[in-house]
Amino acid sequence: MLTVVLQQGINGIVVGSLYVLVALGLTLIYGVLVQINFAHADIVTVGAFVAYFVTHWLSGNYFAGIAAALAVGAVFGWLMNAAIFAPLRDRGNELLPLIATIGVSIMLQNAMLVLLGPIPYAFNTPYSNEVIRLGGTFLTVQNALIIIVSTITIVLLYAFMKFTFLGKALRAVSQDRETAGLMGINPNYVIMLTFVIASALAGMGGAMLGPVLVLTPFAGTSVIVKAFAIVIIGGFGNVEGTIIAGLIVGLIESYTTQFLDPGWIDIVVFALLLLTLAVRPTGLVAERREENV
């Protein structure tokens, strides 16, 4: 039984790491803009498909696929902000960008459906079927990569936010956009940067999720609901909270599967969400909004 508990812990950390990669982008955008980005899920899907095709074109070079997904995600982030969200924000109506994210989401899904078809793709990387077995537990090399890449990403993001000028500028804009502007920070540039980083994270998350997900044009939507739940549980706009909540949700999923039933996963996760909203509405970590991001 101890082996099973340990194995489910490993499984939970893998799934939680994936959720964190997806949720970090959402929380960054919310932290800076107080805006929910429904198109984030579809950038995840785009990233997954980019990684799939690049990996295949380069005869199994998965790392090139990850890099390409990250780059394409970043370009999408810049494009969406420049073409859609920035002009709508200038009109001063907070609802317009929110609705636009839904429009972008539907457009991307249908574009991928037309271009790529509805049949699930089998994204098997060279590491998908390589299994490391240790003391009765197992971990595919692919899943080990997910944990490693997620950890490196989290550390780099944390360092960027805490120790670089741009990171500090991003946090300043999230706390008070007008005052940050008076201090010489260009808020529009910081917002653009936020979209680029968040979408790059989504693209890379897609590259890591692709081999795990059922890869169709709707793949991202299957994880985005959980990602939203994680952002809320962790504290809207709070990076540390998002990381903790992501890992908690991953572990809840695996242990619920083991000791209850997979059908209970959503019940348990969303019960936790409701409990968090009732008892600690600001999330697990966030106390004050000015501390977020």
Binding site: N11, E253, T257
Partner: peptide, 20 residues
């Protein structure tokens, strides 16, 4: 007898349970 929703993506946890 293990049932699951269509939104489940990662089946490693279910496979772990089955293996035990």
């Amino acid at each position: 007898d293990i049932g699951f929703g269509r939104d489940v993506n990662d089946f490693t946890s279910i496979a772990t349970r089955v293996a035990g």
